[in-house]
């Protein structure tokens, strides 16, 4: 029991030190803020949207938002340059994955902001499901 407490305590000390280090280097504030979500209706009103599809390749091939570029964590290095080429100042960037229960769009958006510092990066509320449903009406 004492050994277990020692291990738990040592990990706690290291975690606190790590938290202090990250806080001191500004790696917690701001980054931890959620990526803003944009409803489909609001996105549809915009004229200069750069759509990014964070779903697996087979889903993208089956259908995607017209003009959307694929950008996924697993193939970031290969796909990121095309995104940079396409982006223009004033663009709103909207990332989507399958639905609200997938997390890839948020991860991609976060990484994109970190890499580019672009101001207007959003996650599509409801993801591809919302688009697919919306485009049927």
């Amino acid at each position: 029991m004492r050994d277990a407490l020692r291990i738990l305590g040592l990990a706690l000390i290291l975690a606190v030190v790590s938290y202090g280090w990250h806080a001191r280097h500004g790696r917690i504030e701001g980054e931890s803020a959620s990526i803003p979500r944009i409803p489909l209706a609001a996105a549809a009103r915009e004229h200069s949207i750069l759509w990014l599809d964070a779903r697996p390749e087979e889903d993208y091939d089956r259908g995607h938002v017209p003009g959307a570029l694929p950008l996924r964590p697993g193939s970031w290095d290969a796909e990121f340059p095309a995104v940079i080429d396409r982006w223009q100042p004033g663009n709103k960037v909207v990332v989507y994955c399958r639905s609200d229960s997938c997390e890839t769009s948020e991860a991609v958006a976060r990484r994109l902001i970190e890499a580019t510092k672009w101001p207007d990066v959003y996650v599509l509320e409801g993801g591809w499901e919302a688009w697919a449903t919306g485009s049927k009406h």
């Binding site: 020692r6 291990i7 990990a11 975690a15 606190v16 790590s18 938290y19 990250h22």
Partner: peptide, 22 residues
């Protein structure tokens, strides 16, 4: 912040055979 360090401390204990049961 806590879980990764717990994994590392436990992992090192397993590797070096210290406080093994815990």
């Amino acid at each position: 912040f806590y879980l990764p360090w717990l994994e590392i401390v436990c992992g090192l204990a397993l590797i070096f055979g210290r406080s093994l049961r815990a």
